[in-house]
């Protein structure tokens, strides 16, 4: 295991924690990246924030953070390769959001189907009870 060195910046520490899967620690370290720091560092912090959210399955937050990173890159000019990587992440995040929305829609349909099946079962039971009340016509078959 590599421990973040004491002279590492907050961003370095956050990166190390993130690579080790220590997401809470990474988030904590990112709090040390302040508005006064260079744009590139702030953009990297946003990228990392997006990565952490993505790992947790929080795709909307991930996309927001990556978008913020892209905005910072754009404001700074240059850093095209970094921006391209973030744009790729962004596209992946958006695809995940779309997929999740599609599945949520399908799950809602499924819940409606379940309600319909349960209603059908109750109706069938009620018909069965009614059949037993009618004299001479009680048995199926």
């Amino acid at each position: 295991m590599s421990e973040p060195r004491t002279q590492d910046t907050s961003l370095d520490m956050a990166r190390t924690y993130w690579r080790q899967g220590l997401l809470r620690e990474a988030e904590q370290a990112l709090k040390g990246v302040t508005a006064g720091q260079p744009v590139a560092e702030r953009a990297s912090a946003q990228v990392l924030t997006g990565n952490i959210a993505y790992e947790r399955g929080e795709y909307r937050q991930a996309v927001e953070a990556w978008q913020a990173a892209l905005d910072l890159y754009a404001s700074d000019g240059g850093m095209e390769s970094s921006a391209q990587a973030v744009a790729d992440n962004l596209a992946m995040g958006e695809a995940r959001i779309a997929r999740r929305a599609e599945l949520e829609q399908e799950a809602r349909h499924l819940a409606v189907q379940l309600a319909a099946v349960l209603l059908l079962a109750v109706a069938a039971f009620a018909i069965g009870c009614r059949m037993s009340r009618r004299r001479g016509n009680a048995a199926p078959g």
Partner: peptide, 19 residues
């Protein structure tokens, strides 16, 4: 079981074979 009990009270017939 609920339905079978009620049906059986009304008619013997061919109910069980149908079921």
């Amino acid at each position: 079981q609920w339905l079978g009990g009620r049906w059986a009270e009304k008619q013997r017939g061919t109910g069980p074979s149908a079921l």
